[in-house]
Structure formats: C-alpha cells, structure tokens
Nucleic acid binder design. Structure first.
Lengths: 226, 226
DNA sequence: ATTATCTATAGATCTATAGATAATGC
DNA sequence: ATTATCTATAGATCTATAGATAATGC
C-alpha cells in the first residue's frame, strides 16, 4: 500500500537500486533463505575455481557439488540448472569487482589527479581479478539470454564509474570540455584497457610489468585529456 | 645441407615465413593432398558457421560433417579430433583477417595520414569479421596448448602491422619520437580498440555508428601522437 | 587392390530427477 | 511431519572407430 502522494518516500527505496534491477532471482526448493544464501556461497566458491580452471563446459555438476561439500542431488535443490550456477558465478565476480572498486574509490574528488588515481586502482583490481575477467569474456555467451542482460548491465555499471568521474570533471572545469560521446567512449576505453591486461597478458608480459603498463597507458589516456 | 657460410641464402627462405612457423600440420588418413585441402575447406566453411552460431561445445561433429556434405566417418579421415577442427577454424579466421588487411594496406606510406588510413581499414575489417573475432576471444581457450601457440602468434603478426607502421613513421621522422615500449603498447591498443567494437557492440551501438566510432577512436589515438 | 567413404555402434559421459533416508522442531 | 539431503539411475547425448561398401585406376 502506498502512502499519500507527494510525501517523501523512504530514502532506501530511492537510492539503492532494488535487487531486482541488479540481480536475477534463481528459484530454489529450500525454504530457509539463510541456508539458501550459505549453500549458494559454497556453490559459487567451488564453481568459480572449477570454471576458471577448466571452463564452464568441462566442469561437471558432480564436481561442483563435491567441491562445495554436498551431493549432486542437493546441488539441484538450490539451482534449477547448470546455467543457473554460471549466472551465480558471473554475478559474484561482478559484485566482487564492484565492491573492490567502490571501496578504494570512495570520496574520490575530480580532475586529472583523481582520474589518474582511479585508473591505477582499476588496473590493479583488473590484475587481481585477471582469471575472473577472462572467464567473463569467454563464457558470458553461455548464459541464457535474460541472465546475460544482467551481466551486461553490471559491465555498464563499472564503465559508469569512469563516466561519472569524467562528467563531474567536465562539469566543475577540472577537466577540459568533452562532448557527451567523448565521455562515453573514453570511459569504455578505460574499462577495456584494464581488461586488456588480462586477455593479452601472454603478449604484454613480455615487455611490461603491471606498474609499467599502468604508467604508460595512463599517460596515453591523460594525454587525450590534455 | 647448408651452403658455404657467408653466401647469400635463397630469398624465399629468408622472407616468407615457412608454413611450419604459421601453421600446425594436422595428420590425415587421406593420401591426395589436393583432396585433403578441398575437404578441409568444406569442413572449415561448415564449422565456422556452426561454431560462431552455437559455440564450439554445442556444435557436434555430426552436424559439422553433415553441413560439410559428408558423413561423420569421413570427417575423421581428415582430422584426428574435434579440436583439430577448432584449430582449422581459428587458423582460417586469422588468415582471412590478414588477407583482407594486407590487401588494403599494401604500399602504404608512413606518417600520420597513413596511420589514420590504416586504422580506418583495420576497424572496418574488424566490423566485417565481428562474429569471428568474438569467437576467437571466446574459444581460443578450448584449443590444445600447442595449437594455441600458433593462434596467439597470428594475433601478434596482426599487431605487428601497426608496430611496423609506427616504427617506420618514427624512423623517417613523419611521426613524433616514440620509445620502443610506447610503440609496442600503441600497436596493441589499436588492435584491441578494433576488437572492442566487436565485443562491446551491445553497448557501443547505443551511441555510435561504425563511422562515428572510427572517427572518435582515431582522433584519440592520433591525439596521443601529436 | 588401393583409396575414399559410409553405416552402425562401442564406450564414455553428463545433466537432472525420483524416491529413499536422515535431521529437525513441535 | 516438515525440511533438507543423499543414492541410484533414467535418459539423452556425443566423440571416435571398426568394419563394410563403393569408387577409382591399373
């Protein structure tokens, strides 16, 4: 039931994006929600390792159940299909990524210095999560269409962090003026150049340490803004 | 048997990379090499479509044989395993990519204009081969290790096209001086920004046409060189 | 009589579920 | 008696090969 129109609605509802926007509900046979959360954490922890190591198709549901510490029958009380497990894993990876970023980027100012710092933080997090980012690139395609929507939306939220930073910098004149499309593209470029360190490591590592990679890429990006 | 030291060795051997460096030999039961080439072309044509559409793991060897126009038994006279088919497909994609690029980039000069033109050509080719590039990103991991080596080497050859262009531009002073590592990184960045159009299309297409994408990315890249 | 192709299937999986069992709380 | 878990397996694949058949060239 809604309150009288015009009255202020609870802040919570307005600010925090509802879970339904950022996560897809996966049906379960088990009633206790806390147990569901705990078991699914076990499933995700086990599956992340197996998927990253062997790939989605070569890891079996039996292995996942075993690594999670229960039987195959129990696994299927908490998910409807193997693809549900894939979705849970992709979601967990993105949440972890976002958590790490927001933790280190809170109360960030604007301007060139802030952007430089944000790029460094982001690239370091990409390095820490190399295997997981690579996995997302390789297996997003195996998700059912509606799960995929949520995973791609998460990717846009991460790009959005850089868009905000650029937008705010332009708004308060701490960065040079940029067209809307330039902001959009630069934000996506930054996101991708972080990923690049993960999916081109086999080649980049011949010539660059992470520190060097960050330094030189950051110089290129800031060069565009100068 | 080698000739006398100091004498010039055949140009062919020096210039054209031997097939053994760019391609892995796949064993076959069939004697006639021309027939092998023709059948493998059929296999690749059929498999490319199926793999790109359904992914490597969901396409079956039966389907591939059928789409190629012969039976499953015949398929296995021309390859030893399904992974051999994957390798042939990856190789065909890279050869097609390189063919298209070299065709359009022959007799290219140096300097900013030449680089701008090369970027445009490359991005257009990436657009034409979107599905195939995406497929390489997703399924290279499914290759046996030694096949993977060849596929990654091909990727480096394509990056090498841009490295050459930058190197020559720096050497003849038509570009500003660049450190070796800057050339390496810029070349990789260009390669990846072309791929980005394929693996971020779902997001980029909301704001950019291909022409716009090329124009703005190119401006960023050339901005770094100014 | 050699080479290429086809049919039929062995053998090995793997996902998902049905029905039996154990644990929990009243 | 309700909830969670386990065991056992149905059912559906899918890769790769063995052995039979057809085509080719001498």
């Amino acid at each position: 039931m809604s309150r009288v129109r015009g009255l202020k609605v609870s802040n919570n509802k307005q600010r925090a994006p509802a879970l339904s926007e950022t996560a897809r509900a996966i049906p379960t046979e088990v009633k206790d929600p806390e147990l569901v959360a705990r078991r699914r954490r076990q499933i995700v922890d086990a599956a992340v390792k197996l998927f990253v190591h062997k790939g989605f198709h070569k890891a079996t549901t039996r292995e996942i159940a075993k690594a999670a510490g229960f039987s195959i029958g129990t696994l299927y009380e908490y998910v409807k299909s193997k693809e549900d497990v894939l979705y849970l894993v992709c979601q967990a990876i993105h949440l972890e990524m976002e958590r790490k970023l927001r933790l280190r980027l809170e109360h960030m100012g604007t301007g060139v210095q802030a952007l430089a710092a944000a790029i460094e933080v982001y690239f370091i997090v990409c390095d820490q999560m190399s295997d997981h980012i690579l996995f997302i690139y390789q297996e997003t395609k195996s998700l059912p269409k509606d799960s995929m929507r949520f995973v791609l939306a998460h990717e846009e939220r991460i790009t959005g962090i850089f868009k905000d930073l650029l937008q705010r910098g332009v708004a308060d004149y701490s960065l040079k003026p940029l067209k809307k499309s330039e902001i959009e593209l630069l934000a996506q470029d930054i996101a991708v150049l972080g990923h690049m360190w993960t999916f081109r490591r086999w080649s980049l590592a011949k010539n660059f340490s992470l520190e060097q990679y960050i330094r030189e890429q950051r110089a290129f990006i800031l060069g565009v803004l100068a």
